[in-house]
Structures are given as structure tokens and as C-alpha cells.
């Protein structure tokens, strides 16, 4: 046996959330109605963090809308906020951006990836054609048009780096050294993680290192700086291979956030109180959801080996 000992990075939700400070740039993983690190999101709101620059996933869901509605966000880097058929456009996203209280760094899915890749690769910018001929460069002066320098004449966009202080990513499982494995689709999570200075994994389970070594091909994010165990941590959204989204819960969110947009802040405040502020921690939150409801969301594991 070696005399040296590896550093373990497991922390509680509270310890991890205390690292997210007002004014930081924070990326939130997941995609659409899936794999968002909601236990962390709720704790960040409870801490009263403000003025965040949020980097949403390419198709961000209402986890971003919740943070906006809770007053945490100053600027948003994101190409979509909504929940498709449940909610085509996030209501708080609309409310705050239409009122001029939310700065939106207009981008598309791949211009977002271009910025993340520029950050991950230490480049000054990453070049991409998508966005040429659209209103994106007018709305977002950080993107600069240039002409193909290799003898061409086509217009290209230079997208500057997007560098989150932290990327918070939900995985199926991780070991105590920060090696996380997605058990379903990973969407844009690897790119958010690679672009960030530090990585926080929210995991359904902390598993022994041997489980990770059994199939290192499945490791999507290695050596995260912090690992937080939060079973059902994506609720009300799905976690691939674990549980599906809680449709009624999402519909209730949509109704309450719609009320907020239309000026009924009472309904919205009551929502935040009930689902975010009153439960003292993640377990207390799950208790308010109820065991029967949570078990009803169970899905058969999709990926096994």
C-alpha cells in the first residue's frame, strides 16, 4: 500500500452551495426537462445569492427560469429558456428580460458551444458560421464578424470564450474523487464542464471507485472539484436512467411563474416559499414531494453493463 492518500471531494449540498457567491459566473447542466442539478439550484436560492451570470445549457429548462424568478440572476448566457410543450417560453425569463432587468447574451446552441470551446482550449475565440445572416451579432456585440482569412470571402463569427467560475452538473453516479458517469444522454454537460474553472457534480449516488474503473469509457466528467450526493436531485426534472420528469409539478411551476409574469407576485412568492425556502434541506424538500410521488417517477435503467 502506498503511504500517500488521494484527496476526497465529497461535500454536503450546503457546503458545496456556500462556494457559489454573488456575482460569479455559473454554468448549470442538464438539457430540456432532464438532468438539472436542482438540489444545488434550490440551495443557491436559499442562500440569497444575487447578480449571477448564468450559463445555461443549449436548451435550458425552467431551472434557469426559477433562478431568474428568485432574483439571483443579472446576466444570462443561453440559447433557449423554456420547457417545450409544457412552457414554450419561460415566464420569468420573459418578465425580467422584457422589463430590462435581465441582460441576455444572445446566442445559439453552437455559438454557445463555440464560446465554451474557446474557453476550454484557451483560445481567444472560436470561429463558427452559424449566426451569420441572423440578428444574433447585432444583439450580441461580443461576437465579431470577420472574413475567412484563408483566401475566402465568406463571413464568419468570432465567438469569445465563455468561462464559468463553476459548472454544476448532475450525473447518475460519481466516486469520491470526482469521477462522474452519466447513465443516459450527456447533452452539453462535458462542454460546460471543460469550459469552467471548477466543476461541481451533483450525483444520484456516490459509488466506490471500482465501479468507475469497471468502465472508464463511461466517465464523462473526471476529477471534479466537488461531489454532492443528492438522490432525486433533479426533481421535478428527469434524471436519465433513474426517473422521469414530474409533469404535474412542472405544470404547477408553469402556472405560478405565469402568474408572476402577469403581476401576481403573491402566487409566485408562495411557490418559492413552499418549494424552496421552507424545506430546510434537500431531504426536507423530498419529504414535501412525498415518497409515493417520487416512486411513481421511477424508470427502468436504460444503460447497464
Amino acid at each position: 500500500m502506498s503511504k500517500s492518500k488521494r484527496r476526497e471531494v465529497v461535500a454536503s449540498v450546503e457546503e458545496a452551495a456556500s462556494k457559489i457567491e454573488s456575482g460569479m459566473t455559473v454554468a448549470i447542466g442538464g438539457f430540456g426537462a432532464d438532468n438539472h442539478p436542482m438540489a444545488m439550484v434550490r440551495e443557491i436560492i436559499r442562500n440569497g445569492v444575487t447578480d449571477l451570470t448564468l450559463v445555461g445549457s443549449a436548451t435550458a429548462g425552467l431551472e434557469i427560469d426559477l433562478l431568474i424568478g428568485a432574483g439571483c440572476v443579472k446576466k444570462l448566457i443561453c440559447s433557449y429558456v423554456g420547457q417545450e410543450l409544457y412552457c414554450p417560453i419561460g415566464h420569468n425569463f420573459r418578465k425580467y428580460s422584457e422589463a430590462g432587468e435581465l441582460e441576455v447574451w444572445e446566442c445559439s446552441e453552437y455559438t454557445l458551444y463555440a464560446g465554451l470551446f474557446a474557453s476550454a482550449s484557451g483560445s481567444e475565440f472560436f470561429a463558427w458560421r452559424g449566426g451569420v445572416g441572423t440578428s444574433i451579432p447585432e444583439l450580441n456585440p461580443d461576437m465579431v464578424k470577420f472574413i475567412d482569412p484563408i483566401g475566402g470571402e465568406k463571413e464568419i463569427l468570432a465567438v469569445p470564450p465563455i468561462r464559468p467560475d463553476w459548472a454544476i452538473i448532475h450525473v447518475g453516479w460519481s466516486d469520491c474523487y470526482g469521477n462522474g458517469q452519466h447513465l443516459g444522454a450527456r447533452y452539453g454537460d462535458r462542454w460546460l464542464a471543460r469550459a469552467a474553472t471548477r466543476i461541481m457534480l451533483q450525483t444520484e449516488r456516490v459509488v466506490p471507485n471500482e465501479v468507475i474503473r469497471k468502465n472508464p469509457l463511461m466517465t464523462t466528467i473526471a476529477y471534479a472539484d466537488c461531489v454532492v450526493e443528492a438522490p432525486y436531485g433533479s426533481h421535478p426534472y428527469a434524471a436519465h436512467a433513474m426517473y422521469k420528469e414530474d409533469v404535474e409539478f412542472i405544470q404547477d411551476y408553469v402556472a405560478c411563474s405565469a402568474a408572476n409574469r402577469k403581476g401576481d407576485s403573491k402566487t409566485w412568492d408562495a411557490y418559492l416559499k413552499k418549494h424552496v425556502h421552507d424545506p430546510k434541506d434537500h431531504v426536507a424538500y423530498l419529504e414535501t414531494v412525498g415518497i409515493e410521488r417520487l416512486l411513481g417517477l421511477y424508470t427502468h435503467p436504460t444503460i447497464t453493463w
Binding site: A58, T59, C78, S79, Y80, V81, G82, P88, I89, G90, F93, R94, S97, E98, G100, V104, E106, C107, S108, E109, Y110, T111, W128, R129, G130, G131, V132, G133, T134, I136
Partner: peptide
């Protein structure tokens, strides 16, 4: 002058358009 209705965002449609 300014945006009066905030739409959902472009998602990736301009990236596909090219």
C-alpha cells in the same frame, strides 16, 4: 427601439441553417 416580447431564443436553428 427595444424588445417588447421576449421569444424563446434561437436554439440551434441558425446553426443548422448554414
Amino acid at each position: 427601439k427595444k424588445m417588447t416580447f421576449r421569444g424563446p431564443g434561437t436554439i440551434g436553428i441558425n446553426d443548422t441553417a448554414i
